[in-house]
Simulated assay, not measured.
Amino acid sequence: MTKNISPPEALIYAMVTVSAADRAITTDELNRIGSIVRELPPFRAYTDDWLADAAQDCGKLLRKPHGVENVLDLVKATLTPELYETAYVLCAEVAASDLAVHHEEEKFLALLASNLEMDDLVCAALRRAARARHHQL
């Protein structure tokens, strides 16, 4: 494992990793991560510069051997169990933001759920809710 990070950074790492899972981070995904950081309480003390720095640090970690596994371990070690569902639903939001959840993103969500020992029904509900928020008229 690498350096210690804060819980908000762990959430960023999880969102960046799901976005990068299909090897193509879309503008919609980046915009969704930015709006999540601007809108949600865990990130209120942080600036856009911080988001860019955390995303770059995560990218460096992902490029190393076993990068995804290291991110998953870091997320679990950093977050309290109360934030596991938060991490999962934020990742589901990012994956759904471009209206196409790719196989690689689904695989990362499954790895995240397994690593955080989350209930399958809870995960299904969180994924469904994220998709519902991104349907277009």
Score class of each variant (00 low, 15 high):
Val18Ser: 11
Ser19Tyr: 02
Ala20Cys: 06
Ala21Glu: 05
Ala21Leu: 09
Ala21Lys: 03
Asp22Leu: 14
Ile25Leu: 15
Ile25Gln: 10
Thr26Leu: 04
Thr27Lys: 11
Glu29Gln: 06
Glu29Met: 01
Arg32Thr: 14
Ile33Tyr: 01
Ile33Gly: 01
Ile33His: 01
Ile36Gln: 03
Ile36Arg: 05
Ile36Leu: 15
Val37Gly: 02
Val37Phe: 11
Val37Ser: 08
Glu39His: 07
Leu40Met: 11
Phe43Glu: 01
Phe43Ala: 00
Arg44Met: 10
Arg44Ile: 04
Ala45Arg: 04
Thr47Arg: 10
Thr47Val: 00
Asp48Pro: 03
Ala52Leu: 12
Ala52Pro: 00
Asp53Tyr: 07
Asp53Thr: 12
Ala54Met: 05
Ala55Ile: 06
Lys60Gly: 09
Lys60Phe: 10
Leu61Gln: 08
Leu62His: 04
Arg63Ala: 13
Arg63Met: 12
Pro65Cys: 05
His66Ile: 02
His66Glu: 12
Gly67Ser: 08
Gly67Cys: 05
Val68Asn: 05
Val68Gly: 06
Asn70Ile: 05
Val71Thr: 06
Leu72Val: 08
Asp73Ala: 10
Asp73His: 08
Leu74Met: 13
Lys76Ala: 14
Lys76Ser: 14
Ala77Leu: 09
Ala77Lys: 08
Thr80Trp: 03
Pro81Val: 11
Pro81Glu: 07
Glu82Lys: 12
Glu85Asn: 07
Ala87Phe: 05
Tyr88Met: 09
Cys91Pro: 09
Ala92Phe: 06
Glu93Asn: 13
Glu93Phe: 13
Val94Pro: 03
Ala95Thr: 11
Ser97Thr: 02
Leu99Cys: 09
Ala100Arg: 12
Ala100Tyr: 14
Val101Met: 14
Glu104His: 09
Glu105Val: 09
Glu105Arg: 03
Glu106Met: 14
Glu106His: 10
Lys107Gln: 08
Lys107Met: 10
Lys107Trp: 07
Phe108Gly: 01
